[in-house]
Design a protein around this nucleic acid. Structure first.
Ligand code: SF4
Ligand code: SF4
Lengths: 155, 155
DNA sequence: TCGATAGGGGACTAAAATGGTCCTCAATAG
DNA sequence: CTATTGAGGACCATTTTAGTCCCCTATCGA
């Protein structure tokens, strides 16, 4: 299904929640409660987000989590990357990829382009966009670049 | 990593291989040999592709597989859909989705739009594109539509 | 009609990824 | 000093994925 892992989804939900009140620090318990998810699980994703540099944490009483950067400069690929690793559709689309077929499969190059296109798209959607609560009607256009695919004239 | 399952990748490789010689029927054994993958596995993916209506099969001697439609009207989402089911980033992005948080998570709507954008992108890449053998540098731009995050589409 | 060739269906297993829990340690405020 | 809150990591159950195998059916041509 080409789908996000559930944890990644949680991460997005939690990040959005934080983004809506960026000034305050949010305790894991509080967040877990707000999004109706088990505390340990939320806690785990929060830790991952911190490690990826998307959140800052503060221990002790009055501690909690807050955004490391403004919501407008955190992208969905950042979030996905924090939980699942870099966005890459095929084995050969990321740095550590190691596929035996890379020389013979004949599609590696093009998959990589597609992968890049998706990454670009996800880069253009920020946490600020995600956190918009209601289905806004305002047509905020995301500039999704055309991505060059190797192609022959016939297209 | 938001990545395709390995079988999906195989499916693409095999489809591309068939697409390069669309006139002949290709036996599973032949294909397995061509792409250097174990025969039973290739066979399995071929069956899935047939069931999804992307390939036609013919039994008996002189039988084999061939494309059910021209390569230009088979898209990458078709292929992904055949193996993994419809492209959907989040649980709530596809028909049978069932997520308890849908009313409270606050990001469902926007994830669905992102998901739609990706689906659109994958729809615009055809098997004919994928099958191009060499990494052509010719910058033929694929018109990937800008997708508006906010516009309430006909989802 | 027979037999060789090729696909169809589906059961089965091994291995890996995922989701979720828990426990102990470290930092911080007051 | 102590209550609070995060860090880190071990651990387990479950699901998903990948891969294999067996037996059946269809088609062709001798
Ligand atoms: S595209 Fe070719 S090389 Fe890249 S992963 Fe799939 S098979 Fe391996
Ligand atoms: S986005 Fe909200 S509703 Fe959709 S799957 Fe994630 S949590 Fe459930």
């Amino acid at each position: 299904m080409l789908k996000l892992s559930r944890l990644t989804d949680y991460a997005a939900v939690v990040m959005a929640q934080i983004a809506r009140y960026p000034e305050q620090a949010h305790a894991a318990t509080e967040l877990a409660d707000a999004v109706q998810l088990p505390h340990p699980t939320v806690s785990k994703t929060l830790k991952m987000l911190v490690r990826a540099g998307l959140l800052e944490s503060r221990r002790g009483s009055l501690g909690g989590y807050r955004l490391a950067r403004p919501a407008t400069s955190i992208t969905t690929s950042d979030i996905i990357g924090a939980i699942e690793g870099p966005v890459a559709m095929t084995e050969c689309s990321h740095a550590d990829g190691d596929c035996d077929l890379v020389d013979t499969c004949g599609v590696a190059d093009n998959w990589q382009r597609v992968s890049l296109a998706i990454r670009t798209l996800l880069d253009s959607v920020t946490l600020a966009h995600l956190a918009q609560e209601s289905p806004l009607k305002l047509p905020v256009q995301l500039p999704i670049q055309s991505v060059t695919l190797a192609s022959r004239a016939e297209v």
